[in-house]
Design a protein around this nucleic acid. Sequence first.
RNA 1: GGGUCUAUGGCGCAGCCAGGUAGCGCACCGGACUUUUAAUCCGGUUGUCGAGGGUCCGAAUCCCUCUAGACCCGCCA
Length: 528
Amino acid sequence: MSETKTIGKGIWIDKLAQELLEREKELGRSLDLIKVESGLGASGIPHIGSLGDAVRAYGVKLALENFGYKSELIAYSDDLDGLRKIPEGFPKSLEEHIAKPVSLIPDPFGCHESYGMHMSSILLDGLDKVGIKYEFRRALDTYKQGLLKDQIHTILQNSSKIGDKISELVGQEKYQKYLPYFPVCSNCNRLYTAEATEYISDEKKVLYNCHDTEIGSKKVKGCNHDGEADIGKDLGKLAWKVEFAARWAAFDIRFEAYGKDIMDSVKVNDWVADEILNYPPPHHVKYEMFLDKGGKKISKSLGNVITAQKWLEFGNDKSILLLLYKRITGARELGFEDIPSLMNEYNELEDIYFGRIKVDNPAKLTKSNGLFEYVNLLKPPKESSVHVNFRLLIELSKIFKEDRIQRVMKKLLEYGVIKTKKPEVEKLIELAGNFADEFDQQEKVEIDLDELTKKSLKELTTALNSDEELEDIQNTIYQIAKSNNVQPKDFFKILYQIILGTSRGPKIGPFISDIGRRKVADLISEYL
RNA sequence: GGGUCUAUGGCGCAGCCAGGUAGCGCACCGGACUUUUAAUCCGGUUGUCGAGGGUCCGAAUCCCUCUAGACCCGCCA
């Protein structure tokens, strides 16, 4: 094992980049600029998985640059994709736009030029927030400007050969019958309803007829328009089974990752690129999809879609990058509940990097440090940030809801976790607080109070409201319970239920002082 | 029909992709503190790493076979 020379920074991204370089050298292609691509869907809400595709492609770009090559990430939004389903939480008025390319549908929220740009922007904003740089391209412009017209031409000329091959490779037979090109009907703006009937090679035009069709189980009405589409400037798009290949060749893409759901498409596209377009396809890596935690919570609620934006309410950008860079295989079920451990794991990586934690195995050390550098986009900080266990922050945040930052900070100082108040810790408390508020909704329990308990509670409120110094609130509570023949155990439990909504909590005397005696008295009064 | 992934203490998972004494969180047990709650702190227990075979000085990790489960594709993008 020790004989193995470390490649780059020593993590999977470096290995991938090296494989890519070796392949390119074999192919003898120019390495002046190595372009990597990430495709963004523009029809649904961008899940963190889509973000991952781009973030990982960016990792490969970083690795290539680290090896001394120039590289660029192209973020390509497929905004000619047709709207098939209205996403959860979006207005039903979108119904009339079903089957239209998302870039031709008005933004239902009115903040972007189209529905498609609205969706893409969510993803691009996520990339910006975690520090990923990219060059943005979109399908609408690509097709309008005819950037793919040579490839489309070649593909359509070879459509029957391609149709047969698709059937052979993945068992899908429709392209033996249909052209792998979907024109946008110039009359009703719909995709899919317009069936390409013939390709006139000399004129580079596709003839089509717009008719009723089905998308999924839904019927979509066509407008009966007979039209022709110029592949060099009219709107339309290649089927996915061949579109990647066209784009790779046109844009000279050397790397693209893909999720296992489009494995078959990639297989076909690789063949098309190689055999039809005479362009060796980019190097690939396949990754598993992120799944929602199974059988948990309200799976249909909008809150379950994990977007970068939502994630960043609870965790920092490092936690996202760590999630995506730590490995590419595995990672199946993902939820916001993974954030705390990722936050802590980053701290651990940083401690190792700065030598505060010793790692004996040199290979592991290299890997850990490499991962740390990638999570910092190969610009690691000069000095360590302040570390506070994120779970502790969440626990404290559960307890202190009002004036949270100050109170939690005070506790941290008391515990000796931090030495001085720092803005970066405030930020962490804010994140932990959001997490606590969102995921620790306490069920409002009906509390049954018998007469003795009520009497005790009354005495307690009186004591708390008095101006006398209460030497020891803990002790007072205990005495009150005892003198009224109430089990202290039960009495404490009830107090926790009233104050925190849980049956347990921190030591209650100091805790009441922290929150404020009067305030607790008021809380208790509501139950009397 | 085709394909991918997963299987590790009671539960949830990391470690595997570049082989080198099996780890974390929760739970559990003990101690400290506390006027018998709880929290907190300190310490501790828990595993033939799904089964079988192979490679190797050495396998949770690499290779093959098998079993079980999950997911994806076979609408469309």
